[in-house]
Lab assay of single mutants.
Amino acid sequence: NKASVVANQLIPINTALTLIMMKAEVVTPMGIPAEEIPKLVGMQVNRAVPLGTTLMPDKVKNYE
């Protein structure tokens, strides 16, 4: 099972992601793969992401 990116804290809307905000966890359904964490640093979320929520591609601005 592959790990996904999960919010390590509440991430407010329009916040630029940092390493400390994210952790890798095996979750269902799968979100953004954990190996993409370095790519996500500096990207902004387009909505608030509660603690423990899986980061889905549609929650990150300009994620492809």
Rank of each mutant, 00 (worst) to 15 (best):
N1L: 15
N1E: 14
A3W: 09
A3Y: 09
S4Y: 00
V5H: 05
V5Q: 03
V5S: 00
V5T: 04
V6C: 07
V6R: 00
A7R: 00
Q9M: 14
L10M: 14
L10E: 13
I11P: 02
I11V: 02
I11F: 03
P12H: 07
P12G: 05
N14C: 14
T15P: 05
L17E: 07
T18S: 10
T18K: 10
L19I: 10
I20M: 14
I20T: 12
I20V: 14
M21S: 07
M21V: 07
M22Y: 03
K23M: 08
K23Y: 09
A24Q: 06
E25H: 09
T28G: 04
P29H: 05
P29A: 06
M30S: 12
M30T: 10
M30H: 12
I32H: 04
I32T: 05
P33I: 05
P33N: 08
P33Y: 08
A34G: 06
A34T: 04
A34V: 06
A34L: 05
E35I: 13
E35Y: 13
E36W: 10
I37S: 03
I37H: 00
I37E: 02
I37K: 01
P38M: 09
P38V: 08
K39L: 12
V41I: 12
M43S: 05
M43P: 00
Q44A: 08
Q44I: 13
V45N: 02
N46H: 08
R47H: 14
R47M: 15
R47P: 06
A48K: 09
L51G: 09
L51N: 13
T53N: 08
T53K: 08
T53P: 04
T54C: 06
L55S: 03
L55K: 01
L55F: 06
L55Y: 00
M56H: 10
M56F: 12
P57S: 05
P57A: 10
P57L: 00
D58W: 14
D58I: 05
D58E: 10
D58G: 09
D58V: 04
K59W: 15
K59P: 02
K59D: 15
K61L: 11
K61H: 11
N62R: 07
Y63M: 02
Y63V: 04
Y63G: 02
